[in-house]
Amino acid sequence: MSIEEIVTAYHAAMLHKSPDELADLYAEDGLHEFPFGGLAPFKGREEIRAGYRAMWGATAFEAEEVRRVSLYRTTDPEVVVVEQNAFVAAGDQRITVPGLLVLRIRNGRIVHARDYMDTSAVTQVRAAAS
C-alpha cells in the first residue's frame, strides 16, 4: 500500500471504529504510542487490535467524519505527519477531536505510530458519552 492508501485506510478504520481494519495496517511487530494522555503503548499488531477494541468499545460515541487536514512528507521517506480532525457524536453533543499522527511506514505497513490526540477533547467525548 502507498502512504496515501494507508492514511485513507487508517481514517476509514477510525470512522468505522474497526480495530481489525486498523490493526491490519500495521506490521506484525508494529508499535503504536500515545505520547499524551498516559496510555501505555500497544506493541505488535495483535495488541493494537485488542487495545483499540477495548478503547473504542469502552466509550459510546459515533465517529461521523474523519477529515485529513494535511499530510506532511518529511526528509525521511518512511515518515509522514498527518494532521486530522475526528468529528464525533457523544450523547447529545458533537465534538471535534483534533490530532496528529506521526507514521513510519515501511514495505506498505505501519511500523511505528505516534498518536497525538487532543486529550481535553477526548475527555469531553468520554464525559458526554457517560
Results as ranks from 00 to 15, higher is better:
T74N: 13
V79S: 03
W56P: 01
E21I: 06
L15T: 10
I6N: 03
R53S: 09
R94H: 06
Y26E: 05
S120R: 12
S130G: 10
K43P: 05
R73M: 13
E4D: 15
R68S: 10
P77D: 07
D76G: 03
E28N: 08
I105F: 03
L100D: 04
A113W: 03
V125T: 04
W56I: 02
V69K: 07
M14P: 04
D29I: 02
V81L: 15
D29K: 01
P41E: 00
R114V: 05
S2G: 09
E78L: 15
H112L: 13
R53C: 14
A40I: 00
A127P: 12
T123Y: 09
L100A: 12
L100H: 11
D118C: 02
A128F: 00
M55N: 06
D24A: 13
L100S: 06
G38R: 04
D24G: 13
V69H: 05
A54G: 14
M1R: 13
S70K: 11
P19F: 08
H112C: 07
T8V: 12
Y52A: 08
H112Y: 08
S2N: 11
A113C: 11
R45L: 01
L15R: 13
E28W: 03
M55V: 11
D115M: 00
E46C: 05
A127E: 08
E5S: 15
D115Y: 06
L15D: 14
G44Q: 01
V102Y: 07
A60P: 06
F34D: 00
P35I: 02
A23T: 02
V7R: 05
F36T: 12
P35M: 15
F42H: 05
E83W: 02
R68P: 09
D24K: 09
M55E: 07
Y10V: 01
E33V: 04
V69W: 00
E21T: 06
L31A: 04
M117N: 13
P41R: 04
E5M: 11
R104E: 10
A60N: 12
L39S: 09
T75M: 14
Y72F: 15
E5Y: 08
A63P: 10
R94A: 07
A58H: 05
T75S: 10
D92E: 09
A27N: 02
G99M: 01
L22A: 12
A27R: 01
W56T: 00
G57E: 04
P98Y: 05
T75C: 14
Y26A: 09
Q93N: 06
G37Y: 04
I48P: 06
T8P: 03
A90D: 00
A23F: 06
G44Y: 03
P35H: 12
F87R: 03
V79F: 01
H32D: 10
L15Y: 12
Y72V: 09
P98T: 02
P19W: 06
A128I: 02
